[in-house]
Structure formats: structure tokens, C-alpha cells
Design a protein around this nucleic acid. Structure first.
Length: 466
RNA sequence: GGAGCCAUCGCCAAGUUGGUAAGGCCGUAGAUUGCAAAUCUGCUAUUCACCAGUUCGAGUCUGGUUGGCUCCUCCA
């Protein structure tokens, strides 16, 4: 396995801290609103990572957090009058449900900030005790970036003169412009207020990830975890700050490898809530099948930006359709063993920093070769069984191709339409038997008008939703 | 203003250590079909934004130009 490390900016051979085991922490969403396609892509990218490492026989433990304490959540509480817990649990459930429609496997650990307060307090206290952090008059706790000589190593940002991290909250008690809040004192009578030895308040954004990682992973003398992931926008300041806190609190580096996924763009611009160009996952799932969305969003390498277009999504679907037509051709039954070369090619591709384009081309090639072989020898049982196994392997590794093929092509077709189609097909078959091709073509036009395409095979007429 | 990423066929998109351009969509010519659809086969970038350099040899390395995006503020 080779992984592109976004801190060293090179592809590196992956060598886990512990032989045969991999620990991964991915920054999850702040749960105050619906997930958009960008969240989906991030989830999908790291789902691919987990599946690939698992297929490579690593024992993978992946954690993905939910930030459930945050200014935007508090704002939502004030706006709606609902409790914080009501809001966060609503969006967490929704998030998990939508990700599951995309075939994203659940993380092994799903920590929440509200359930990690002790760990957070411990870490902050430790930083205060060792003088890496300081409490100001209001009770806010800041991390002293000047005490960490390695500060800047993650994002490679040189120290700037400007007050880059305090444009929102200005305080003249900060020792350095880049110092950031570990703990924020509660101002008024907010209900989100936790008591600690330094003050009543709530954690800053960056500390929760560091604390959770220490809480849930054992780590080693040199690193807490193997891989830390998230969106490219988290590189600075979030991951820089996380790395600094953890380094100073634990005495070693936070993560051995750092992976960042590119953005989903709409018309060449980053999709973000602040720009108001979000395409929400829930809305997308109403229009498109989750599996097709998955295939599409995963079809571009995770580090590249992804420009969303409906046209490209349809192209992606056509490609997926071909796999399902082959699956239809081998029908159901027990698979034998995966073709060795095919398996190796797929794993080789994915082992190269998740080269999905290569992997998909390997699949396309397998589909074409297999169809070719079936054209020559339609009753090749051994090939049938091998193909079933091959497709099962695709499903395990890449998370698509697992549906029953006939139902895949009938998504969105209700029972009454189905009955109508089948009646028309029978009528057309009768017309064909009588060689009344004029009539059979008329019926086919009727079927086409229903949004259905048909194909005559030796086993009868099959149909698909166009 | 500071920092970084990207630029490959009409469209999408691969391209480890530089060695002579994957794959998909579209288009097109065929096989097959009553005709289609599906499937298969052939064809479809002497060329990798532009300029200069290093080299026997560069899409791949170096410098510059142009264009696009991102981060520096919450953000996947």
C-alpha cells in the first residue's frame, strides 16, 4: 500500500505502527445541518481506504467523530428553541442514514464531543500544567503556539505577522497572534456549559479530536495513530492545531500519515454552506440512486477536486449498468473463486493511493472480456461461477455491484407500471410470433414512451428502466 | 497581500522512480438482430495550456508566462 501524505507531499509506502493493524481517525461533521455532497465524498473516500486496507488483510480500526458542541449548534438552539441534544441527535441519525444509502460502512468508533469531556478536560489541564496553555482573565484557555517549536509543520505555513487566528474573537490577552482557544468560557446563561477546574465553559473546536484520539487509540511512543484524514480545508488551521496540542500533551506526533480529500465543486466553485451552493445529500438521494451516486462520487481520485454535473453522473451510471448487465447474464448462484489476475490488478490499483480510475478500468476490461467469452460460449459454467465471485469481490472492495441485477434496473418502477410493461411485452411477443412486425414495433414504441427499453434475448424479452 | 494545488482527445479521466499517451462517454464502420436494444470487433490525441532549459530521450524534472481552484474566517 502506498499513501500520499499531504504533510510530506509525497507518496509513501504505508508501514503501520503495529504490524498488521491500522488506526484511522477521520474528522466527521459538525451536526447542525444536513450533509451535502462534499460530506458524502469525504465519507466515500475514507470508506474506500478502509475497504482497501481491510482487503489487504489489515485489521482496521476507524474512528469518525461527530462535533456536537459548537457555536453553530448553539445558534440553532437559540433559533429553534429545541435542545442541543434534540438537534444533534436528529442530524446524526440523518447523516448515518444517508451515508448508509451510499454504502458507507459505519466507523468502528463514533465519538462525540459531549461524551469526551473528561478526556478533553484532562488534555487541557495537562497543557496548562506543562505551560503549553494559559488561562486568561475571562477563563478562556489558549494554546501558546510559541511554545511549540514544530508549530507550522503540518501546513508548512510560516509565521505571519497578522492576527490570522483571531479575526472573530479579539482579545488582547493572547500572547501570540496564532494562539487558539482550547476552552471557551460561557458568557451568559447558556445551557451548554461544563464545569472544570479552569472555568465553566465548553471546548474549542480543535481539542476534541486530539482528546478523542488519545482516549480511543493506544498508539505508540512515536505516533498516536497511523492515518488522520479529513477534507483539504481542514489542513489549516484545524489539523495544524490538533497536531500541536497532541504533540505537546503526549510528547509524540499525532499521526504518521495525513490524508486530505479534494472538494466537490458546483460550476467550478467549492461547495460550501457559506457560499450557498450546497447540493444536499438528502435531495440528491431523492433524485438519484445511492449506489449510482456512490459510483459517481468515487469515480474521480479522492485528492482531486470533483466538479459535479448531472451529465457526468449519467455517464457514470452507464458504466455501472454494464457491470449489472454482466451480472444479469451470469444470473444468480454460488460463485467459485475470484480470478487471480483480476483480483491482483484491482488490489494493485487501489494500493496505489486508491487509484480508483485504474481500478474502474480494470473492471471495464473484465466486463468486456467476460462478455466476449460468453458470446463465444454462452454455457460456460466455470466462467459463470468465476464471474459471480469477481463481482462479489468488487462489491466488497469498492462497495458497488451488490444488488440483485433485475431490481437494479427496475429502481423507480412501481408495481402497476411493472404489470403494464409485462403485459405489453407479452402482446409484443405474440405479434412477433405471427411475424406482425408492424404491430410489435408499435408496442415497442409504447414501451419506450413509458421510459423503458427492452432487449430480445434467447431467453425472452428483458426490460430496463432507461 | 501571503501560502499552495491544478492545466492530458468534443466531455470525464489515468499516467511509481523521465523511455516514447489507460479506461469510460460521445462519434463512426462492421458482426449479431425481422428491425432494434444489449453484446462483441475495428477506427477516433505524432500529442499532453504556452515559452525556454536540463537530457540520447520529458505529459512526467527546472525556470518563466497564462488560466482555474483552494487555504489564510466556520467548513468535508
Amino acid at each position: 500500500m502506498h499513501i500520499y501524505d499531504s504533510v510530506q507531499k509525497t507518496k509513501l509506502p504505508f508501514e503501520p505502527i503495529k504490524n498488521g493493524e491500522v488506526s484511522i481517525y477521520v474528522c466527521g461533521p459538525t451536526v447542525y445541518d444536513d450533509a451535502h455532497l462534499g460530506h458524502a465524498r469525504s465519507s466515500l473516500a475514507f470508506d474506500l481506504l478502509k475497504r482497501t486496507l481491510t482487503a489487504l488483510n489489515y485489521k482496521v480500526t476507524m474512528a469518525k467523530n461527530f462535533t456536537d458542541i459548537d457555536d453553530k449548534i448553539i445558534k440553532k438552539v437559540e433559533e429553534t428553541g429545541k435542545s442541543m441534544e434534540e438537534i444533534t441527535s436528529f442530524y446524526i441519525d440523518r447523516y448515518l442514514e444517508e451515508m448508509s444509502s451510499l454504502g458507507v460502512q459505519r466507523a468502528d468508533i463514533e465519538p462525540k464531543a459531549t461524551e469526551s469531556l473528561q478526556a478533553i478536560e484532562n488534555m487541557i489541564q495537562k497543557l496548562i500544567d506543562t505551560d503549553f496553555a494559559y488561562v486568561i482573565s475571562t477563563g478562556d484557555v489558549y494554546f501558546d503556539t510559541s511554545k511549540d517549536s514544530n508549530y507550522g509543520n503540518i501546513s508548512h505555513r510560516v509565521a505571519e505577522d497578522d492576527d490570522s487566528q483571531s479575526r472573530v474573537v479579539h482579545t488582547n490577552e493572547k500572547r501570540n497572534p496564532k494562539d487558539f482557544a482550547l476552552w471557551k468560557t460561557c458568557k451568559g446563561d447558556e445551557d451548554i456549559c461544563y464545569d472544570t477546574s479552569f472555568s465553566k465553559g465548553r471546548p474549542g473546536w480543535h481539542i476534541e479530536c486530539s482528546a478523542m484520539i488519545e482516549k480511543h487509540f493506544e498508539g505508540s511512543d512515536t505516533y498516536s495513530i497511523d492515518i488522520h484524514g479529513g477534507g483539504a480545508d481542514l489542513l489549516f488551521p484545524h489539523h495544524e492545531n490538533e497536531a500541536a496540542q497532541s504533540r505537546c500533551a503526549t510528547g509524540h506526533e499525532l499521526s504518521k500519515y495525513w490524508m486530505h480529500n479534494g472538494f466537490v465543486q458546483i460550476d467550478g466553485e467549492k461547495m460550501s454552506k457559506s457560499l450557498g451552493n450546497s447540493f444536499f445529500l438528502g435531495d440528491a438521494l431523492k433524485i438519484y440512486d445511492g449506489e449510482v451516486l456512490r459510483y459517481y462520487l468515487n469515480s474521480v481520485h479522492y485528492r482531486n477536486d470533483f466538479n459535479f454535473s448531472e451529465e457526468e453522473l449519467q455517464t457514470a451510471k452507464k458504466r455501472l449498468d454494464k457491470l449489472y448487465r454482466l451480472k444479469k447474464r451470469v444470473s444468480s448462484g454460488k460463485g467459485s473463486t475470484v480470478n487471480k489476475n483480476f483480483k491482483k490488478s484491482l488490489l494493485d490499483a487501489m494500493s496505489d493511493d486508491l487509484n480508483i480510475s485504474k481500478a474502474l478500468s480494470v473492471i471495464d476490461e473484465m466486463v468486456a472480456t467476460t462478455n466476449d467469452a460468453f458470446d463465444a460460449d454462452p454455457k460456460n459454467k466455470a466462467l459463470k461461477k468465476e464471474t459471480i465471485a469477481n463481482i462479489e469481490f468488487i462489491e466488497t472492495l469498492l462497495g458497488f455491484g451488490g444488488k440483485e441485477p433485475f431490481s437494479y434496473f427496475q429502481i423507480g418502477v412501481d408495481e402497476s407500471l411493472k404489470a403494464q410493461i409485462e403485459t405489453l411485452i407479452i402482446q409484443r411477443s405474440e405479434a412477433k410470433k405471427e411475424k406482425n412486425f408492424e404491430r410489435s414495433d408499435t408496442i415497442r414504441n409504447e414501451i419506450t414512451a413509458l421510459g423503458i427499453s427492452i432487449m430480445d434475448t434467447p431467453d425472452g424479452t428483458l426490460w430496463e428502466k432507461a
